[in-house]
Design a binder for these strands. Structure first.
Lengths: 340, 340
DNA sequence: CAATTCTACTTATCCGGTTCAGCAGCTCGG
DNA sequence: CCGAGCTGCTGAACCGGATAAGTAGAATTG
């Protein structure tokens, strides 16, 4: 079953390849009658243009790239990425664009992937996730003139456009809420220390605690896994002056923390209030249901995809802010009953 | 910054394009001296072959496709897919292959994606997931001569090779274990009813229960979401003769079921034993930790990828079995204390 | 009515690789 | 010393589209 080409259509229609090309692409240069005849034949034999041939003639690859740098273990249970990808995909497939995905081990590998994608013209642009402080990927995409959008960076990452959430505001709102409930000693279990948003959240947390006269208990860096979330929680709860509330940088760690609290005989929210950054159905399934900072991650991904497509199209794009995460109070937060 | 082509290398080396092509591809036809000179120049100017030009000359796309048909909502919290993708990716990137991902709404859309990918020569083959009974995708890939590997199908899906787990055996082992503990009334909360493996598990469950003289309580079909898992559990536990053990078709529903049991005042495992099919870190984080059927999903994905690459290479491939899920007893299963 | 413009095409070239046919120049055997 | 066989390269065709340039014939215009 040979795959049909425009030459086949041309032969069947009794015209030249050029005429077929014009007809298929809606260019002027063929009569309406001929165009319809050609389109009918194309439809009949199930013609699809060879993407490589098209790309070779200077057309775009109609593909965008996404390289993720996280171990398989983490990607599995972190709902964030899969939701982000879903959102990106929804936007892309609606516009006939494809997504090329690659999971990489480290920053060098990721840069290598960008260079190869660019050299091979496999993608028109890339989404850069998990921005780090002094991220080495930024100068690379800039040098290559590879269209890119940073997902989650600070306003204006060099010349690279980005989409972002106001994590600082979300965290401040959370601290204010906990302080209003009467908490005077709040801890935070942070994610990977070198991620940009970890810094943003850390300084927002410190600032809010200071302003409200709340003691900010040691915030520890983790890899977002449940294991590390559990370990961090154990350490926090074993100190002589334990916090009455903990804010976790993701939901998996929050659930793990809840387990640890129960295992140590503390009641939630009586002895300990828990807040999760990012909300997944699991936060509602555990008991007590977790208070969480909700945001629409698929929508965030879709926004990033739209932004990247605009950048690829050569439109001037800058920094775009997505909706700030909303605090959804559930059963895991309350006034502290014990005073340390 | 113009991207270098073999013509640029040829000019610099003072040879023809053909010689450069031979040198870069390790073909005979150039002297060792010339080859080294050409490779040095290629390295120096950062040459990468244009994937489209290569593909146009009949080469493979070096890309495989994966279309997933699940709503974003489900993909987010189902660790299965992301772990599978991680495993596939690990195998692919080690062999210089790329992964094209698309999320689709229904079977027709998925078939459309296959046709387009094939017509546009974007992929060399596809992984077909979530096999359904009488799956319409099978005749399509067969007709198109699109190399494909079914992930999780029954042995020999027409002529399409596949990789699979022995879900039946895993389920039988679980029922035997629960029966040995003294359970006489076991329920099962099943996943999507039209998926092939749901049928396999259902008949294995019925058979094992019959053989062991255990009453198989109504098994209900769900969409794998926590909500439906919770609803199904509520119905099961509200009947006059409630089961003393429930087997869930995934871990998310098992966790939701645990929540419902606790909410209804039942103790786990005293009043109700719970087993989850598929194991994620969350199963260990909740209290009590869930007994689960563990399998190495990234390894499963890697196996599928290897198998597909072999099929693409034209090697004769058939049905390959992956390791059977292992029952890992944790704190959610015990002898029943109450007798209904 | 000749000159111009427009329509509806055809022809030819290009994109950047791969690959086949051809061709010097050298080696070697008889 | 001549032809066969090898090495190491060149030139050109080719893949399947896009597109600029050319052209025949009809319609419009001065």
């Amino acid at each position: 079953m040979k795959r049909p080409t425009i030459a086949d259509i041309a032969a069947r229609a009794g015209v030249s390849k050029g005429a077929v090309s014009y007809a298929l692409n809606g260019q002027r240069g063929v009569s309406e009658t001929t165009r319809r005849r050609i389109l009918a034949i194309a439809e009949e034999i199930g013609f699809n243009p060879h993407s490589a041939a098209r790309a070779l003639s200077g057309a775009a690859a109609d593909t965008i790239g996404l390289a993720l740098r996280r171990p398989a273990r983490v990607l599995g249970f972190e709902p964030f990425y899969m939701e982000l990808i879903s959102g990106v995909e929804a936007e892309l497939s609606a516009r006939g664009q494809a997504l090329m995905l690659q999971i990489v081990a480290d920053a060098d590998a990721e840069i290598g992937v960008y260079r190869r994608w660019w050299g091979e013209r496999r993608v028109d642009g890339v989404l850069v996730c998990d921005l780090r402080v002094g991220d080495p990927r930024i100068p690379v995409v800039t040098d290559l003139h590879l269209p890119a959008v940073v997902v989650g960076g600070p306003e204006g990452v060099g010349d690279v456009p980005n989409v972002w959430n106001d994590d600082a505001m979300a965290l401040i709102e959370t601290v204010e809420y906990l302080a209003a409930l009467g908490h005077r000693r709040i801890a935070r279990v942070a994610g990977l220390p070198d991620l940009w948003h970890t810094h943003v959240r850390a300084s927002a947390f410190r600032g809010a605690c200071e302003r409200l006269g709340v003691t900010a208990a040691l915030t520890v860096g983790t890899d977002y896994s449940g294991e590390e979330g559990a370990r961090a929680t154990r350490r926090l709860l074993s100190g002589e002056t334990r916090p009455t509330a903990v804010i976790y940088d993701n939901d998996v760690m929050a659930i793990a923390g809840l387990g640890v609290a129960q295992e140590m005989g503390l009641t939630v929210p009586g002895d300990l209030s828990i807040v999760a950054f990012d909300d997944s159905p699991l936060c509602r399934l555990v008991h007590p249901a977790l208070t969480a900072l909700t945001r629409d991650i698929p929508a965030y991904g879709a926004l990033a995809a739209r932004h990247l497509l605009a950048a690829i199209a050569g439109q001037p794009v800058g920094s775009v802010q997505d909706a700030t995460a909303k605090l959804v109070p559930r059963a895991s937060t309350a006034r502290p009953t014990t005073s340390t």
